[in-house]
């Protein structure tokens, strides 16, 4: 168990997220497992699909995460409604990203609603965070 915790710490230290966000992802992981017994860890490829696919959003119009964040997470995006510049999502390009659980949970809730017109599941949230970390 100790080794597992250590391995988890080590693997997440290679990823770009603060300890509190890593902790949050561990909680998401537990929830995902409880909701789906075949869950075997978050997956950046599934996260990419969530992030780049188009859905009928809250406004009843086609919408994707990339509508505002663009497909290159290292670049700044633009709010599609107001035109306001959005700082890059990639933690490598923008070290402020994935440092606060409060910010992460706020935006995941809001943006799943905007794009999917529903909240994301624990697995979906973890997948999308994993994708963001690796970009």
């Amino acid at each position: 168990m100790k080794y597992l915790a250590f391995a988890l710490l080590f693997s997440t230290s290679l990823m770009a997220a603060s300890p509190e966000v890593v902790q949050y992802m561990n909680e998401l992981s537990k929830t995902a497992k409880a909701e789906n017994s075949s869950f075997s860890g978050f997956d950046a490829a599934r996260g990419k699909e969530i992030f780049t696919s188009t859905h009928t959003g809250k406004q009843g119009k086609p919408m994707a995460c990339t509508s505002c964040h663009t497909t290159n997470l290292a670049n700044a995006g633009k709010n599609s409604l107001t035109g306001k510049v959005i700082d890059p999502l990639s933690p490598r390009a923008n070290p402020q990203r994935l440092t606060s659980t409060k910010e992460v949970t706020k935006w995941l809730k809001r943006n799943f609603m905007d794009v999917y017109a529903r909240e994301g599941s624990a697995q979906e949230k973890g997948d999308v965070l994993t994708y963001i970390m690796k970009n």
Partner: peptide
């Protein structure tokens, strides 16, 4: 909020 979710804690 103008078509988006702008909820706060």
């Amino acid at each position: 909020h103008f078509g988006t979710d702008a909820t706060l804690d």
